[in-house]
Amino acid sequence: MTRHQQIALRIDGLRMRYGTAEILTDVTFQMRHGEITALLGPNGAGKTTTIEVLEGFRQPSGGQIEVLGTDPAQGGSQWRARVGVVLQSWRDHARWRVRELLAHQGRYYTRYATDLIERPWDVDDLLEVVGLTDHADQQVRLLSGGQRRRLDVAIGVVGRPELLFLDEPTAGFDPEARREFHDLVLRLAAEGDTTVLLTTHDLNEAEKLADRILILDRGRIVADGTPSELARQIVGDDLVRWTHNGQRYVRSTTDSTSFIFQLFQQYGDAITDLEIQRSSLEDTYLHLVRQAEAGAGTTTSPELGEVA
């Protein structure tokens, strides 16, 4: 599949500033077609701002952005039809019935059907996929939180988007609902051959869903790769502990193997109680989160309040 070699999204040097507060300093990354990418970061890192720029809802202060070959700020209806946005519903369309609302949203996409992509998604099929068949004739306001979120996803994909954005899709979910939601996203991505960008502050979620993880911290991408690549790329220092002449030593080092080799060369078997603690991706990420929390308030803008 050559399409998978193509770039779906490219941002280069994205900056975002509100007054004197700089939310995004330099965000640069690319996504290929068919990839599921997670934008991971602590609260206040700039995830929502980044995804809103890509969705075309926010004008960046600087940088080159291309989503499906178009600058989102200039994206017309043609472009909009190829991009899906999963919004977190609150109480909009409360009195609409589930099927009625999905069918209505689908109508806007009819004219964008192509030989390759049938648009919109058949409403009954889609209800089946998101597990809302039994609630098709129910009013939206009577749905449970989890059902409502699945309807949000259905609305986001009813036009069979080539690229789908999900911002903190499982915030406030219990573990059960979270697992169901993960399965749904994976199924959608496989079935629709859809490129997905989601934001999350949960490392486990990112590892489970994403082919690739980008870690955003204080307005910059600080790590980029598959979960296993990341573990190698951003490993912090390993911790080496040993005892020599009854004295306990601790040393942190980036290259524990050569450090220990030198240690043995120097002291031979006088070294005892040797311990190596490798830093995991989780440790590194938690370290980032703690740093962000310690500095909270300095990176969030007053105008936006809580922006992830």
Binding site: S77, R80, A81, L87, S89, W90, D92, H93, Q105
Partner: peptide
């Protein structure tokens, strides 16, 4: 009301949604 509850944002995320 519909600006506050996100109806308008949904329309904005849809092609020709604001006109509709």
């Amino acid at each position: 009301a519909e600006r506050e509850d996100g109806t308008l944002l949904r329309a904005k995320a849809t092609p020709h949604g604001i006109q509709g």
